[in-house]
């Protein structure tokens, strides 16, 4: 049985932990609202661009002369896994879920005899991936100095990826991030980003002939990197919202668990205190009787 003092210290320590988790939960709730709003605001652009890409892709046939971003390099040997994580912990299994999804894919690809490389966004997944693939990380994008991922970051990441692609460092790129369903549910998602998968041709034939300036192919070449940037941006926003959601749920659980633990410890503390008092009384009475 722990002594009274030990119990008291223990209760205090759990209480301060609970304070931290409670604060983090509230912060996450506030940030979640903001992240959701940001994700919502980004939707019109992504939807329009996807629409335009869809109608263009329906007009341009993929051939050897098509831009590499659409047609690929013609090989399927080197796969780059872009893993988007967060910079902070205290968000439950959020980061490890994404990393786990990436690891499964990497193992699968390796079993097929492909080469796997990693590009990491955010700080958290690094150690876990380095443990299994110590030499496969070819790049990392640091987001520690950024409060909210913006389009500037997406642009920087996309440009770096495009540079690597043009240098022939990889053939196919997959993006791993967490899709936001609700504060309770985040789905780790894998998505191929390079070569750009042709969006489903939208059936927007309203009879009118659309004029293109310059021609379809040139527009497509120009739009492809933009599409990539938008997708990355969308993924960053989803990730942000997911992180806050996961954090909120995890911290809610932690706060509740801490509360339960405090109750249990308090009962134990009171019992031992009572026991101590009883023993003392018995001792006094016994002493008095002996006289």
């Amino acid at each position: 049985m722990a002594s009274l003092k030990e119990l008291k210290l223990r209760i205090n320590s759990v209480k301060s932990t609970q304070k931290i988790t409670k604060a983090k939960q509230m912060v996450a709730a506030a940030k979640l609202r903001k992240a959701q709003a940001a994700a919502e605001a980004a939707r019109p652009y992504a939807a329009r661009l996807a629409g335009v890409m869809g109608s263009l892709a329906g007009k341009v046939t993929v051939s050897g002369s098509s831009p590499k971003l659409l047609a690929g390099t013609g090989k399927d040997q080197v796969h780059l896994l872009v893993v988007a994580n967060s910079d902070r912990g205290l968000c439950g299994a959020f980061n490890s879920n994404i990393v786990k999804a990436a690891k499964v894919k990497a193992t699968e690809l390796q079993a097929e005899g492909k080469t796997v490389l990693f590009y990491l966004v955010g700080r958290k997944g690094r150690a876990q991936i380095r443990r299994d693939w110590p030499n496969a990380i070819i790049g990392q994008f640091d987001t520690t100095g950024v409060r909210e991922p913006g389009f500037t970051e997406a642009e920087a990441i996309a440009n770096e990826l495009l540079g690597l692609f043009e240098a022939g460092k990889f053939d196919v790129a997959h993006l791993f991030y967490s899709k936001f369903r609700s504060a309770l549910v985040q789905v780790p998602t894998a998505q191929q980003i390079i070569p750009v998968p042709a969006p489903a041709a939208a059936a927007t034939d309203d009879g009118a002939v659309v004029e293109y300036e310059p021609d379809e192919e040139t527009i497509l070449v120009e739009l492809l990197p933009r599409y990539l940037r938008t997708q990355l941006f969308g993924a960053l926003l989803e990730n942000m919202a997911s992180e806050q959601g996961a954090s909120m749920t995890a911290m809610d659980n932690a706060t509740r668990n801490a509360g339960e633990l405090i109750n249990k410890l308090t009962i134990q503390y009171n019992r031992s205190r009572q026991a101590a008092i009883t023993t003392e009384l018995i001792e006094i009475i016994a002493g008095a009787e002996a006289l």
Partner: peptide, 19 residues
């Protein structure tokens, strides 16, 4: 400012895409 020259758009313009 289109990439192949400026263009003005009024109501009822024909369907058109440009960088």
């Amino acid at each position: 400012p289109g990439s192949e020259g400026e263009f003005g758009v009024l109501e009822g313009h024909a369907p058109f895409m440009s960088t």
